[in-house]
Amino acid sequence: MLPVIQLGPLSLPTGPLALLLAVWAALAVGAWAARREGLNGDDIYNAGLYGLVAGLVAARLAHVIVYWDAYRTQLLEIFGFNQRAFLLWPGVIVALAVAGWYVYRHRLPLVKVLDAIAPGVLVGIAIADVAALLTGRNAGAPTNLPWAVSLWGVPRHPVQIYEALAALAVAALALWMIARGSRPGSAALVALCGYGLSRWLLEPFRAPEASVTVLGGLRLAQVVGLAVALIALWGLGRLASRTD
């Protein structure tokens, strides 16, 4: 359990720190893959960083709009450092829109860009999984296996590590496909399919209390993971048979 990293007098919250590390790793891997595809790696960094900054601004702005009553009396808080004063989804949507606008504006081949960023995103997800273990989130189901970790007083599956390893394995597969020069779009689809399958396969190792359920007890991550994997597989089939 390490929700706060203590550096002398400095308390750094693990969550936001891991988020920054994950974004940086995602961009670094994405830029590397982009160069392998004959793109300019700097474009990946630029699109990612513009998206990140725009997303942060939008997430704060949305918070200000929703909680305007609170901000009205203390306008300086709009620019405050409070790490909770953000709304997630407006930030994500604007970040994606701005990154997409960059790709469009610079006439980058969208499919190749998606191929390049897919393994990077998976590496970022793996980092977020490790952070989830450190902060005690997404607890695993109880088990007596020798590699169980103790969380909340019970030995549990280190499911966050299973998920991180699966994400890294899928990232490696996608990178291998890029390095091998496989058809544009296939690395991104393999990444989607693999990640969907990993969530579908591994979700049952999460503690029941850490699983969101739908439709009378089905685990949401499994349902969505399977659906994404099937759609990606269908896309791969289309891609493979296009030139056959």
Binding site: W200, P204, G217, R219, Q222, L230, L233, G237
Partner: peptide, 23 residues
Amino acid sequence: WNILIVVLLIAGLAWVWVNRLPA
């Protein structure tokens, strides 16, 4: 490809079903 997709669909739904959480 279509056979593969159908097999995954069936196996997938089975794994989702056995791991459901009773309400």
